Simulated assay, not measured.
Amino acid sequence: MLAPVIDPEGAPFWRYAAQGELRVQACADCGTLRFPPRPCCPHCRSFGVDWRPVSGHGRVWSYVVPHPPLLPDYAERAPYNVIVVELADDPRIRLVGNLVAEAGARLDSVPPERVRIGAEVRVVFSGDGLPQWVLERP
C-alpha cells in the first residue's frame, strides 16, 4: 500500500485518523470547517487553527473505477473504487477514499456495480489508520 504524503498542515488529520478519529480543520476564530487543511482561513483570513471531530457520516458525491489501475501497487486489487464523500456535517467538505465491505477490507471488497452516487456511508479506519468508507445500509 502507498502511504499518504503528510505535510505540516495535514499532519494532525493523519494523527487523529491513526487513533480512529475523523477530525477536520476549523478556523479557531470564525469556526468555518475547511478541507484540505491549510494555514489560513479563506473566509476571515485568521491563522488560528482547531481540529474538530465530525460525525463520520456522509454520502457518495462521486466515484470512479480506474481501468487500468493508474498505480502499479494497485494492479492486483483492480477493479476497485475511489469515492468522494460529502460529509453530513458540512457538505462543502469532501474526502476521497475507498468504499469497502468492512474496516481494513481489501479495496476490491465492494463490487463496482454496488457503488452509487448519493449512497449513505460512514467512516471506518484500516489497521494503519487510513480512513475508508462503508455503506450505512449494506
Rank of each mutant, 00 (worst) to 15 (best):
L99H: 10
G118V: 13
V5Y: 00
V100S: 10
F47I: 11
E120F: 11
R15A: 10
C40M: 15
S109L: 13
D29P: 01
I117G: 13
V84Y: 00
P4Y: 14
A75R: 14
D29L: 09
N81E: 04
G56D: 14
W51M: 00
A105F: 04
D29Q: 09
E136K: 14
P91L: 15
E21P: 04
R137A: 05
Q25S: 01
W133H: 04
A17Y: 07
A78S: 08
E136W: 08
R45W: 08
D50M: 03
E21V: 07
H67K: 08
P131M: 13
V84T: 09
W51K: 03
Y74F: 14
Y74W: 09
P39S: 15
Y74K: 01
V84E: 12
L33W: 04
E21M: 05
R116M: 10
A11N: 13
A17F: 01
R106S: 11
P111N: 08
S126H: 10
H67D: 00
P12F: 07
D108V: 01
R106A: 15
L135K: 06
A11Q: 15
E113Y: 15
P36T: 11
V64Q: 05
G56F: 04
P138E: 13
V134R: 11
L135R: 04
A103L: 12
V24Q: 06
G97V: 10
D29I: 03
A119M: 10
R77I: 00
P138L: 10
V124F: 02
G31Y: 01
F35D: 06
Y63P: 07
R137F: 10
R106M: 08
V121K: 03
V110A: 07
